[in-house]
Design a protein around this nucleic acid. Structure first.
Lengths: 349, 349
DNA sequence: TTGAAAGCGGTACCAT
DNA sequence: ATGGTACCGCTTTCAA
């Protein structure tokens, strides 16, 4: 037995000839178009037999060309996927994306050809938008290129971005972890433990996800009439030894850190100075934590798998309703209890 | 600014009209067909300008239909990818596949739509072979469906399978970790440490990868004139307490296990009986090991990333040379030194 | 140099 | 019920 000569796939017309019917009859048999054009069982069987004998399989591109649908959902990451797939960053999103794609009968295109050679990937390369290959796409990545998002949007290409990204003049449809809500929730929780004097530790990043956290934090602090005189709250990023000294001296009882990195740094500094967490100072983190950190942080959770699923659903939704203006979607981030929040100690005199 | 109405991508004819040239001229400008149909710079610029103005991007399906090439490589797994992607099984293969796809300018289609709903995935579903969407594919998975491999091969579809799979009457092109060579290498190593009397622990699996290990093992044992009277060598799988007792009593000094699972089980049994590894008995494993096992096993390594890369290269090779009969490729598995092999103890009288 | 036209493999409408 | 036929968007002769 030898394989068929490569590149000689049988076509509908071959099937038609063998079955002694017209090509369009074959097409109708295949599409299983039960409603409109009923086909006598006998003919159907002849066609089916011919299909089997020739090992005919429909050509996907031709179908796509006709139907303007691929059942293909694109995944564009602005960096290579798999090197990072292990870090939870991409991994869990992909899990959800794949799961939902499988359930809804879509295939997934991972756009790797768009590699620019410098580790980054671009949508538009020499005037070609590879994403067009897919009916719609899910985009994600840290180093998102906003100009490309804008053009994609202007072109009317159906996509969602995981994580909020703002581009002036365009309303990028995003699936957004609700950092804002989680930040207010965490402040509420601390306040519920009697804390009134807060400090905020800020990352140097100026991206939307951080803006959301800061918004939520500020909103809660103001709403509850809390005090925060920290540099982070004023807009300075990082953590200095001086500020840790100040913390030890001052009346702050609660610290909210934007990242585990900062929280760990703080914890180290406090320990050196004999200050205990959470007995003396409570600390919460506005980031998803992982195993193996030096404390079990009170923090938030990013429901990544769910977000992946939702992103796929949103894209499919856009395909089904092309006329509805694409909206962003907020996904709640549960607050994860840890062991770094306790009741506020007595106010010092 | 509002996005273009969705689903109204501009076509070449639109560009042509705007530029005041014919559609085929546009096509030639785009293909950059410098040789045959020279186009005056002035016209070229007009066309380019029109392309830019309309934000035209070529339709991938149409191109594909014409050219019979997508620059799309398929990845078909017989189970969902990402749930397992963390286990090294899939993960590192994908790493290599993605890397090579990016380097060679191919996109990757993950065939998720082929889910049968029972956790398995099939290539052929209601007579359609989704893989056709891609120019060629890399298949992998533990629960490979041989009938599908056979049909794919008979259809002349270009693909490789990661891992050896035999189907009567078809020569499935595979990229094969050289378990056979690694097994002989490990026996050689043990023999080099003075071992003459061996025992073999066999998994219940009857797949090609195990057959390869067994072949290699048997070959080396016979070539070196070694002794093996173990049940595993005779064809029985598993490990019984009786055999461990026998091992302790008997003269065997070396055990080769097909899996970490068996090796660990053995180690436990030996410890209970006060037998030390490797001082009293050396143990080697014919499987890639991982962190966190109870011993640092002398074992083999599966160069998964490299295999992924090679698989992509093989597919591309098949695309470039459709007439060459597809051959399988053997990839050497390095032998990883551990701490479970030592010199053979003195023969007991 | 440039345009007209014939497909690539299907789908779907419109007659018959 | 069936077949003829006009596209889908693009590439590639072949003439003009």
């Amino acid at each position: 037995m030898t394989p068929k000569r490569r590149g000689q796939a049988p076509r509908q017309s071959d099937v038609a000839r063998l079955a002694g019917v017209s090509q369009s009859a074959v097409s109708r048999v295949i599409s299983g178009d039960v409603d409109s054009a009923r086909i006598p069982e006998e003919t159907r069987q002849r066609v089916l037999a011919a299909i089997k004998e020739l090992g005919y399989v429909p050509n996907a591109s031709a179908r796509n060309l006709r139907n303007k649908r691929n059942r293909l959902i694109g995944v564009h990451t602005f960096e290579a996927v798999f090197p990072h797939a292990r870090d939870d960053f991409y991994f869990e999103f992909l899990l959800g994306i794949e799961e939902r794609a499988e359930q809804t009968g879509f295939d997934l295109v991972m756009f790797t050809s768009t590699g620019a050679g410098d580790g980054r990937r671009r949508v538009y390369r020499d005037g070609t938008n590879r994403l067009n290959l897919a009916d719609g796409s899910v985009l994600l990545g840290v180093s998102t290129d906003r100009a490309e998002l804008a053009r994609l949007w202007a072109d009317g290409y159906p996509f969602v971005h995981i994580g909020r990204r703002e581009v002036p003049g365009a309303e990028i449809p995003c699936v957004i972890p609700d950092y804002r809500g989680a930040a207010t929730g965490i402040v509420d929780k601390l306040a519920g433990h009697g804390h009134r004097r807060f400090a905020y530790l800020r990352e140097p990043m100026e991206m939307e996800p951080y803006a959301d956290r800061r918004d939520g934090y500020r909103e809660a602090v103001e709403r509850l009439g809390l005090t925060d005189r920290s540099p982070g709250f004023r807009g300075e990023s990082g953590l200095t030894g001086e500020w840790i000294d100040e913390l030890v001296r001052g009346g702050e009882t609660a610290v909210v850190a934007e990242s585990v990195r900062l929280a760990e740094q703080l914890l180290g500094g406090l320990r050196e100075r004999g200050v205990r967490v959470p007995e003396d100072i409570s600390v919460a983190v506005l980031e998803a934590t992982w195993e193996g950190t030096s404390a079990q942080w009170d923090s938030l959770e990013i429901p990544r798998v769910a977000i992946g699923r939702i992103a796929v659903d949103r894209v499919i939704d856009m395909l089904d309703h092309p006329d509805q203006p694409p909206e962003s979607l907020l996904v709640p981030c549960p607050i994860v209890p840890g062991t770094t929040i306790a009741a506020a100690r007595e106010e010092r005199p």
